[in-house]
């Protein structure tokens, strides 16, 4: 496994170091707010442009935004309901199913790294 590497940020590749910003406290909220702002801006723009959709409902203000929001919520709650019915343990299909077995490590780069170390 790769956990033997020291996890100090200085060892990370440049791009990775840059991206660690998202894990700083408060970054999540900032991102969420930025997204909210962007959505608001889109709603404003939606007022200004002319639309000629195939269906009348497409031309209603903020239709896509509402539809998108509700769809997503539906998907999540639909999925949660499905999980209630469909969830099983990983050994449901017995021991000879791929869900139970690990990916053979000798076919990955993991073992080679371990050897290097």
């Amino acid at each position: 496994m790769s956990d033997h590497r020291p996890a100090t940020d200085d060892d990370l590749p440049a791009l990775g170091r840059l991206l660690t910003w998202v894990d700083r406290p408060g970054s999540g909220t900032k991102l969420f707010r930025a997204l909210g702002g962007f959505c608001a801006a889109l709603l404003v723009i939606d007022l200004l442009i002319s639309k000629h959709g195939h269906f009348h409902i497409e031309d209603v203000w903020a239709f896509y935004g509402v539809y998108g929001f509700l769809s997503f919520v539906c998907v999540i709650y639909g999925a949660k309901t499905l999980r209630f019915f469909a969830k099983r343990n990983e050994d449901y299909y017995g021991a000879q199913a791929i869900d139970r077995e690990d990916y053979p490590l000798d076919q990955t780069g993991v073992t080679k790294e371990a050897d290097d170390a």
């Binding site: 889109l42 939606d46 896509y64 929001f69």
Partner: peptide, 11 residues
Amino acid sequence: VGQLLLLCFAL
């Protein structure tokens, strides 16, 4: 705009 609305509100 329609597509962005859909996706951003979903986000």
